[in-house]
Design a protein around this nucleic acid. Structure first.
Lengths: 210, 210
DNA sequence: GTCTATAGGGGGATAGAC
DNA sequence: GTCTATCCCCCTATAGAC
């Protein structure tokens, strides 16, 4: 926020320009299929500058990967430990956050799934997702619901897989969904927007099934 | 099936050896990150033979891609147009077929999602998935259920996305699921096996929600 | 059909001028 | 900090012997 540079796109510094271009290309085509020359061109700078700022393609990729991972889990993390909201409200908030995020950046899920497969150790060492999730208020509330008999579906892992599957899978399968449904980009977005409302309802029923 | 060669792995001809190696490598790492040298080594043959049989890496990839796509939709196609089975039985059959297939070859979904994103036109021109799906007995039965008021969820596209999401997503997110749950490969498989039973139940409820 | 050897090009990275 | 020019390795593909 120094020198109020950040607000205007014209004035972004070179390092940021490179990162923005790299994010775009890596998200779209993955590590191996992206050429540093493409990133440089997209950023409107010379290839040498990329190595000047980031040393190597791999290091640049690692930065983008971790930042994207962070922002992806952010959409869930801000909700999970909120002491005020109910379990049900959390589900709605998570669905809304993800659908809003992924409607703007639909490439993120496939990018991340590929990145995790190729670099599981790097990622999970730096982001202790497991601990964060298992110790969250969300899981505490889930367990309470189970012990009170309000929900029957008692495996939190199966539950979170279902929730994320319903939210994230359509974005991963986007080209197929568009093809089978004969949808334009806008129609696809509308379909996803409708799921903001539907997913919490579906999940409510899933939670009552054992 | 000529000369009963097919039955023994030792006797597979060179072309098949190359295809098997290529399938393994492409499924695991995708097109760009796979080197023809790796395929040749995995197949136990010389690099030149790969080009002798398949002309280029791209042509070999296209063959693997189309075959994989075919076998993936096969798991659904054999069920969709069966006149004997009920709608409910079809759902169970599809879940079972996919979970059995993907437990043996968990790399397929991520491979296909990437391949479709990179080559949508090639694929959908050759495989008219949309027509096949929309004209299927399955969809006819779905519409009947809706008109009889037995199910309320009346968008077949939303429905199939949910069904495939519940079935396929865990395999795409496999490394994350294993991490968060602290699961071994065997435990992951057990979890997926349990979903054979659960998914039809969940879907039953989803179909009653609007 | 299968091999060795090598051509040919592409892509990541750096040297060095400005 | 930013550029031009270039190095050099790696990878796909082919030529040609057997």
């Amino acid at each position: 926020m120094s020198r109020d540079k950040v607000s205007l796109k014209m004035d972004v510094d070179t390092q940021t320009k490179i990162k923005n271009a790299a994010r775009l290309m890596f998200h779209r085509k993955g590590f191996a299929a992206t050429r540093t020359r493409d990133i440089a061109e997209e950023a409107g700078i010379n290839l040498a500058l990329l190595n000047y700022y980031f040393r190597s393609k791999q290091k640049l990729f690692d930065i983008i990967m971790m930042e994207t991972m962070q922002s992806f889990f952010q959409a869930m993390a801000v909700v999970l430990n909120d002491e005020q909201s109910t379990f049900k409200e959390k589900i709605t908030a998570i669905a809304n956050n993800y659908i809003d995020l992924l409607s703007v950046e639909p490439e993120i899920p496939l990018f991340l799934m590929n990145a995790v497969r190729s670099n599981p150790n790097v990622i999970f060492e730096k982001l202790p997702i497991k601990q964060f999730f298992l110790n969250s208020v969300f899981i505490k509330q889930f367990d309470e619901m189970v012990s009170k008999g309000k929900i029957v579906h008692n495996d939190p892992l199966q539950f979170v897989v279902n929730m994320l599957g319903l939210i994230v899978f359509p974005f991963i399968a986007r080209p197929m969904v568009k093809e089978v449904g004969g949808l334009s980009d806008i129609q696809f977005d509308k379909m996803m927007y409708e799921r903001r409302r539907l997913i919490p309802l579906w999940i409510k029923f899933i939670l009552k099934t054992k």
